[in-house]
Design a protein around this nucleic acid. Structure first.
Lengths: 213, 213
DNA sequence: TCACAAAAGTGACGAAACGTCAATTTGCAT
DNA sequence: ATGCAAATTGACGTTTCGTCACTTTTGTGA
């Protein structure tokens, strides 16, 4: 591998990645970006594969080299979201000083994440389609597993009572999603307030949730 | 109205409802039933309007007299579900002896409801599509309002601390949905265990949730 | 009872979107 | 440079869509 590119006259191949793969990821990304835009503008149902591909430099046939359908594109978008969120969640876990701290920072991280994610959409942020599609992509399952593992660890360490970790993980996720959505509907969204509420509710229930209606 | 049908030879028009309206609701219902079946068998994405109408005695054009698209059919299915659930929830509220009782019976009612609802689908219950689509139909919003109202009442009566009722309602709904889904994945689904978990979590947080991993 | 108007159903048709594929272009290695 | 494999392209046949002129059904009042 020491003589790579030695006889070439004008190739500037310093990177370990070939152009082949580079355009491949670029095209995939272009499709995902265009799709996010189109879904935001037309709504998922009304959007067509052609609408998406029109948002790129690619030809219609090329779409099918990357995705089977617009459904698969949507899944990929969600999956990417989860993939971006996972390391954030992991950091929250590793940096946490206590169980309460972990919970709170995880909720803050999630709330922060969805606020950012919803800001970058096309203009009509508020007139979002009423449909919220949630699904189980590999990365989303991984997020669930990570949450559950953290909770099981906390239980094992005696930081939390011996409750059903599966149900508890689901409850945390459900609270994050629903309270998160409610937070987004308010302006401005108060990340800390939402995270405080969720953390207090999990830790002490109604008694522990922040006051003020 | 005392001489209704007096001169007729073979009409048995005792009902106050005309045939017009009767076939109308029957057709609508037929479409919904067929749609539920088709969505379960093919998945929402793969299903076409023609697939749905093929499950009825109606012609393709007739579909559009009732719904604008398959999306609208899906919404109607969800809306009907919420409409069926609402009186159940109301009864839980009216019969409740205490706030704890209300919460618990509401969770039981929800868990019971989704177990029933998911039993009546076509054969492939387990191989359900990974997509779970949730949306805000009028009836669903009404359910949310009802939950929130109950919680606000409880707060006003001093049965619950003065927390953010909107967030609390969302949290309850999120927990119900996610823990409910997790319950459905288990066999057999234990309605009481799931409801106990949710109730305990809301009331006292982790401390109040039932033990046993 | 009958005729007639309004309402609902029907299915064929043009338009739109889909997914494929043979031809072409691009990237990589010899 | 040259050849091969991989990727792109867009035209094409297919499928689904949504409409609409026409038929059938229902309600009504003479």
């Amino acid at each position: 591998m020491s003589h790579l590119g030695q006889g070439m006259s004008e190739t500037a191949n310093v990177e370990p990645i070939g152009k082949r793969e580079k355009t491949k990821v670029a095209n995939r990304q272009a499709i995902l970006v265009a799709a996010r835009q189109v879904f935001a503008e037309l709504g998922y149902e009304a959007a067509t594969v052609r609408d998406i591909i029109r948002g790129t430099e690619l030809a219609s046939g090329t779409f099918y080299n990357y995705f089977k359908s617009k459904e698969e594109v949507f899944d990929a978008l969600a999956d990417d979201g989860a993939r971006r969120f996972r390391p954030i969640l992991r950091m929250a876990r590793e940096n946490a000083k206590s169980f309460e701290d972990y919970l709170h920072s995880a909720f803050v991280a999630y709330m922060h994440f969805i606020v950012q994610d919803n800001q970058l959409e096309g203009r009509p942020i508020q007139e979002r389609r009423p449909h919220i599609i949630r699904m189980d992509t590999p990365e989303m399952t991984a997020v669930y597993q990570e949450v559950r593992q953290s909770l099981e660890d906390a239980i094992a360490h005696g930081d939390a009572p011996r409750v059903d970790a599966d149900y508890l993980a689901c409850a945390c996720i459900g609270i994050a999603q629903e309270v998160g959505s409610a937070m987004l509907r308010r302006s401005p969204p108060d990340i800390d307030a939402a995270a405080d509420f969720a953390t207090g509710l999990i830790l002490k229930g109604l008694v522990g949730a922040p006051r003020q209606g």
